[in-house]
């Protein structure tokens, strides 16, 4: 049995949803960053799956680029978390609400 495109897409959608739910539900900055990574990877899965379907390597190349950028993203994110810790800010996103209205 070959694994068909729909299955890949379904799995990626599930991954995407898991990531999104993570962003929506978790309050720790680190977990949120993690959830974002999950979502990025779901995109990568989609890209690769389509790439195989369409033929050619464009999708796979794009997936690689996405991975690289995801890494940079995390670096910045973690840096921010460190800076926040240094300012003795509570690491709970629900408490980050001085800016509102």
């Amino acid at each position: 049995m070959t694994v068909g495109l729909p299955l890949f897409l379904a799995i990626s959608a599930i991954l995407f949803s898991i990531g999104l739910v993570g962003v929506l539900l978790r309050r720790s900055p680190l977990t949120i960053l993690l959830s974002l990574e999950v979502m990025l990877n779901s995109v990568n899965l989609t890209l690769v799956a389509f790439s195989r379907e369409v033929g050619g390597s464009d999708g796979q190349i794009f997936a690689l680029i996405v991975m690289g950028i995801a890494a940079a993203e995390v670096v910045v994110g973690l840096g921010l978390v460190v800076a926040m810790t240094r300012r003795e800010m509570v690491l709970d996103t629900d408490e980050l609400r001085t800016l509102n209205g």
Binding site: V23, L96, N100, G101
Partner: peptide, 17 residues
């Protein structure tokens, strides 16, 4: 409607979703 602009990032993500 700026009530939803409550500063909580999860709320923002929810609106986006």
């Amino acid at each position: 409607f700026t009530v939803i602009e409550n500063g909580i990032v999860r709320m923002y993500a929810l609106v986006l979703a």
